[in-house]
Design a protein around this nucleic acid. Sequence first.
DNA 1: CGGCGGCTTGATTCGAGTCAAGAACCGTGG
DNA 2: CCACGGTTCTTGACTCGAATCAAGCCGCCG
Lengths: 265, 265
Amino acid sequence: MDMPSQFLESSRAPLQRPKKQGLSHFRQKLVASGMDGGDADEILRRVEVISGIRRDRDIVAFDRTAKHATVLLEGMTCLYGRLPDGSRQIFAFQHPGDFCDLSHAMLPATSREAAVCAVTGCTIGIIDRGILEQLLVQYPSLMLAMWRAAMLEASILRKRMLNIGRQPALQRIAHLLCEQVARQESVGIGAATLPLRQIDIADAAALSIVHVSRTCQQLQKLGLLSKEGHRMKVVDRKRLADLAAFDGDYLDMPQLLLRWQVRLS
Amino acid sequence: MDMPSQFLESSRAPLQRPKKQGLSHFRQKLVASGMDGGDADEILRRVEVISGIRRDRDIVAFDRTAKHATVLLEGMTCLYGRLPDGSRQIFAFQHPGDFCDLSHAMLPATSREAAVCAVTGCTIGIIDRGILEQLLVQYPSLMLAMWRAAMLEASILRKRMLNIGRQPALQRIAHLLCEQVARQESVGIGAATLPLRQIDIADAAALSIVHVSRTCQQLQKLGLLSKEGHRMKVVDRKRLADLAAFDGDYLDMPQLLLRWQVRLS
DNA sequence: CGGCGGCTTGATTCGAGTCAAGAACCGTGG
DNA sequence: CCACGGTTCTTGACTCGAATCAAGCCGCCG
């Protein structure tokens, strides 16, 4: 939120600073996927930035027919679905640089199956779909970045399904938290304290909020977590990962696609 | 398995018959994704057919470094993962025409996170990765078909996550069976009897085998299922879908991407 | 006619959900 | 800077769905 100052004060990266604030994570992701820096900037130019979005607001609705695609720039959002009875399942948390509606983005219409909601206050970027389509034709490496993002998302989804389906609450939550910390880190946010409410954890882990409360206390007693106000802080990351049999490898695949880029473009 | 006779006897499609037996479903899928028939045939020519694969054999292994991509031609397979303790979670069932290793296909190496196993005896096709890459460059519509397949897979995965996370056993199994029947149908297999063992259902629904047994009996008492030997048969599809709040729309998106094809190629 | 893979059954245990009340926290405005 | 009100988290008592264990049965296949 008042994060820009970090960038200005950083002694490490004084050369490049985001033109429009907040776009840097997205830019970084494009470049990490093998895109040329100049091309990335060209794409960024087409992004309209919207900041000051409040927690709990829907960024992408179920009934969406919107004519734009969305990228998360700052903050945290979640992709979720609902049962007819109203209960919610969070499919994925999204971090700065992530495409919010990859699932929708490439499809003209969508069967109201998922929506995206702000978990914290956040900033997003939107791109007109028509323009996005042009850009995809113009910059094959953009399509590559989207492939990569889609594959990563699917990979994460499977891991989470495995955990929800086959692990008890303690491991399930431990794994979820490990994943979020790792993802934050992968976009350069080194915070051990996650901005999640317990209800978010509950809906993501497919547990009741009461059980989440009790389980988190257990994790605290084990010395793996502590509380920072209402937020959970990961104290002993190593042992937490251990408990959850968490292996962050599946989140990496950063330069994996670099080979590809050469062939396609 | 001894299915080819069907094709020959069909009074409806006497004109085109699969060159190599079994490839027809895959061809149909390519065409349905907007690919030109001639191009599809060109691609099929590069596919090596392997038949006679037995149930329970792994088609794609965890440790895969294989130099080829795989397509299911006949039969049924499943994409699954395992916990360190050995317990299995089935992420998705695959039907004729499906890419078995989409998740792996585009990535040079893979963090041993998922494998594919034959649920019935089956026939697969394999394509050398190098050749696939060439084909992708040569035929943009192939990439489109793969996008579509990937998005569909992700969509199914989310739906299943929602059900596993938030529905009780009865609905969960009902939904799973509805999904499989609908998918079979979408590739032209109209069988109400599914080739799944109860252990497959258990691993897919994230339930114990014992509980699946009891729950299936319940579904039989409700008149929604019956048994055909050891296999479950869907008797009252409508009421089953009703019970599970199943809405097959998310499986369709068949011609959704046709618009796209025009722009990209 | 075995034999074995797969399904059933009953008894028991246990993890997790629900309900309901209360406490802690947080942002807001005076 | 503190008081207030809603949100979020906590606790305890109770219930319930699902897992586990352990036999036994069925039916398919050699």
